[in-house]
Design a protein around this nucleic acid. Structure first.
Lengths: 208, 208
DNA sequence: TAGATTGTTAATCGATTAACAATC
DNA sequence: TAGATTGTTAATCGATTAACAATC
């Protein structure tokens, strides 16, 4: 058995940033990029860029740099962006609406395919071409549509209950925008998108 | 001169999480909390909770735990949440609108006081009680309203140009929601709220 | 006093950086 | 060949965890 090196989570996170920069470089028809430039465009050091990529193989050419198209494709494959990932969205408030309209989905290989809410006022209305469904539909929709990731944008007070229902429906990946920790069983992964932590922590550094 | 220990950035970030949990505990009239419970509610270890707090002093009572109200107040003071921080928002799209409506501002001591956009269609309209102003007003508004933090939610392609204008206006703290690195002079701090990185990196872990 | 929990030190773990041989 | 840049190792740096004396 080959001894797989364990990849740190921060590396995976930076990989998504490289991928995004490579998107941009491709748009600009740049064909080759060095670790130095990749570093400048991401805010990481060139050494870190090379180290991160080296976890997965040798993608560059010494003396030259990295082939933009090839690296883009390779990172997409590593991250699992080479196949479609279907996501659901729970909570059709302002933030949920913003995410539903987010234009990254067109370029990337993942998209929101269903939107849920509990408010009778909202159910039946349409956001970004999706009819808002009641939460009681979650389990059925997950199966029918092959949803793999659920995005939660409900108020903090409702997040745990919603998460329970999501887990019950068989979902293994949750992106939680509610500003509260949710508890899930082993095998279910939760990523937190904490909008306010960045704002609050910034204030600390503005002290004179 | 006293030798100040340098506080790691992650500690400051976790402080904002403790603060939020303490908000909740106060609402529930809980008066004392242990590092263990604070750990459970935040997802950190009890040792880490104690270590984090110890950077700033001795706030607990051995054998008992931490006084919720006092710790809440203390962390607020450390973070600079004890005095009002005024923020501006640039980009009145879906995300900007969501942030403008975000209800955390009512509870916390910081708030959005002005909203800017370049779209003539949007200028003059109202979001969350704020009339959308043209970007040419930024500099004047910063001075008049005492804006200390600017939140940027414009498309990636426009982010750098907007950031330049913000820096020009004398702003020292930026929260950037655009998925691109922005370059600013020394002394200006940028925090990134990267909504897609969490989604994309999650997909990696859902590989079978 | 007995039980509980902090504050703090030392040990461990892990990530970043520097440096350079390999090589295009 | 000379110049450039990768891939990789070793050194450094920093953060987390474990453990326990202090003490309520």
């Amino acid at each position: 058995m080959v001894k797989e090196p364990k990849i740190p989570e921060v590396v995976i996170r930076r990989l998504t940033v490289y991928h995004r920069v490579l998107d941009l470089l491709m748009e600009n028809h740049v064909e080759v990029v060095s670790s130095q430039e990749l570093g400048q465009r991401t805010g990481f050091t060139p050494a870190q860029v090379r180290k991160d990529l080296a976890y997965f193989g040798e993608f560059g050419t010494r003396g030259l740099g990295y082939d933009v198209k090839f690296l883009h494709q390779t990172i997409a494959k590593i991250l699992g962006l080479d196949r479609e990932t279907r996501m659901g969205l729970i909570g059709a408030g302002n933030l949920g609406t913003a995410l539903a309209h987010y234009n990254i989905y067109r370029r990337e290989n993942f998209k929101i395919v269903a939107i849920f809410d509990n408010d009778p006022q909202k159910i039946g209305k349409t956001i970004a071409n999706h009819v808002i469904q009641p939460m009681s539909n979650i389990s059925a929709a997950v199966k029918e549509l092959g949803i793999k990731v659920m995005i939660i944008t409900v108020p903090a007070a409702a997040a745990q209950e919603v998460a329970n229902a999501v887990v019950q429906a068989g979902i293994k990946g949750i992106v939680n925008f509610a500003p509260i920790k949710i508890n899930v069983p082993e095998g279910v992964r939760v990523h937190y998108a904490d909008l306010t932590a960045e704002m609050l922590s910034l204030i600390y550094y503005l002290h004179d």
